[in-house]
């Protein structure tokens, strides 16, 4: 369900940067901790893009693995499941080093080829 909201935000961002040009590819980096289900995001992306310059664009999705760091003991570790306490010292003051991004990295747009003749 939340993929519909995410798809809307992604498509809006792409539209804002397309400046009216048709978009053929949208590249997105989504952190593992954002709980985005790729298949579901693609499904909604296609629907939300309809009747906009993003219609028919391909969604390139990169899932960024989750990595946490402990402020107390400086331990760093990969997370796969929602466990946010430091496995080394048990501390709860933890920073997300990667895995919470939701970023439109780039778009590819179609432009008329300038006449060089």
């Amino acid at each position: 369900m939340h993929e519909l909201s995410v798809a809307g935000a992604v498509v809006d961002t792409a539209i804002a940067h397309a400046a009216g040009r048709p978009v053929s590819v949208v590249t997105v980096r989504a952190g593992h901790l954002r709980q985005v289900v790729p298949r579901s995001l693609r499904f909604y992306f296609e629907i939300v893009a309809r009747d906009t310059v993003v219609q028919g664009a391909r969604l390139e999705l990169e899932i960024v693995p989750g990595r946490l760091g402990c402020r107390a003991c400086a331990h760093e570790w990969d997370v796969d499941s929602p466990a946010f306490r430091c496995p080394r010292c048990g501390g709860g003051d933890v920073t997300v080093l990667s895995g919470d991004e939701l970023e439109v990295e780039s778009i590819e747009v179609e432009e008329p080829t300038p006449c060089t003749a």
Partner: peptide, 17 residues
């Protein structure tokens, strides 16, 4: 027509934020 890559690097929720 030809394809141009546009660098965006923007949080998808920037507009909302």
């Amino acid at each position: 027509m030809h394809r141009v890559k546009v660098r965006v690097v923007e949080d998808a929720l920037d507009a909302n934020n």
